[in-house]
């Protein structure tokens, strides 16, 4: 239990007034630790909303610096931030929105050597990465460390997301097995992305994290939510955990190894 200050009670009043959240739910949010991997198109809205919501500790991972071409969608960064490390730019905005939040920065790329140690310390993880080697690595690490996470992917006008509770709900590899070959699938840098679509998907991921923390509603377990912003059609595809899954089924994975970089820009 913690005592909220008058400032916090006022700040979070619209959460606290929500019947499904209340003071207890806001306490859970304040006591939670969420890791956001990638401070880009998805990571930007996620980090902003989680900071605003009062998540007690937010870790943010990115080894990159802000580029002018990021600003069309990565709304946590401003024109003045070009060439600044993304994690530092993000941390400054998160603390400006909510000084009650503790932000830990990891100015690095995640790989098999460091991901487990970082992921282990968090209650929930957000995949905001832009390549398949990272997405499968995050899935492996979260399954192995038993940390729930939100998968997110975007391309052109579309997005997909699912929430994974390791060993209880289907994991990313239950659905897609393993990374596609290099350059088989277009990327945002080669095929483009409507900036607002990153915001649509990122805010869904932030909502899933908050739902999980508070323990309210039905997370996107055992289903992939896909949408197409051109038609504005949203669909859920339901499935079950695959007992023969390479990662979470049967014997499952025992150790973390790197996947080959499968897109031209293999960055976290």
């Amino acid at each position: 239990m913690r005592d909220f200050s008058d400032e916090e009670l006022e700040r979070y009043s619209r959460h606290i007034i929500l019947q499904d959240v209340g003071i207890e739910g806001q306490e859970k949010i304040a006591n939670s630790k969420v890791l956001v991997i990638g401070a880009g198109g998805l990571g930007s809205p996620v980090a902003l909303y989680l900071a605003a919501a009062g998540v007690g500790e937010i870790g943010i991972v990115d080894g990159d610096v802000v580029d002018l071409s990021n600003l069309q969608r990565q709304v946590i960064h401003t024109t003045a931030d070009v060439s600044v490390p993304k994690v530092l730019s993000a941390k400054a905005k998160m603390e400006a929105i909510n000084p009650n939040v503790k932000v830990t920065v990891y100015q690095k790329f995640l790989d098999a050597s460091n991901i487990l140690d970082i992921v282990k310390g968090y209650d929930f993880v957000i995949d905001g990465t832009d390549n398949f080697s990272s997405k499968f690595l995050i899935n492996d690490a979260c399954v192995l460390a038993n940390v729930p996470y939100s998968h997110g992917g975007i391309l052109r006008f579309g997005g997909q997301t699912m929430t994974i509770k390791p060993h209880e709900s289907a994991c990313y590899a239950c659905v897609f097995d393993s990374p596609p070959p290099a350059n088989a699938i277009p990327t945002c840098s080669s095929a483009g992305i409507l900036g607002a679509v990153a915001g649509m998907l990122g805010t869904i991921q932030a909502a899933e994290a908050l739902k999980y923390i508070v323990g309210v509603g039905d997370p996107l377990y055992n289903r992939l939510l896909t949408f197409d912003a051109k038609s504005m059609n949203f669909r859920n595809v339901n499935f079950k955990k695959n007992p023969k899954c390479r990662v979470c089924g049967g014997e499952g994975i025992k150790e973390i190894r790197d996947y080959e970089a499968v897109v031209c820009e293999a960055k976290l």
Partner: peptide
């Protein structure tokens, strides 16, 4: 349906089929 089993599958009346596509973007 695993990739290597695709050729063995014949569809029947009432089947519900979903095609799920890779989406690797995020940054």
């Amino acid at each position: 349906i695993r990739q290597d089993e695709h050729t063995n599958v014949v569809l029947k009346d009432g089947d519900e089929i979903n095609f799920l596509y890779f989406m690797g973007g995020g940054a």
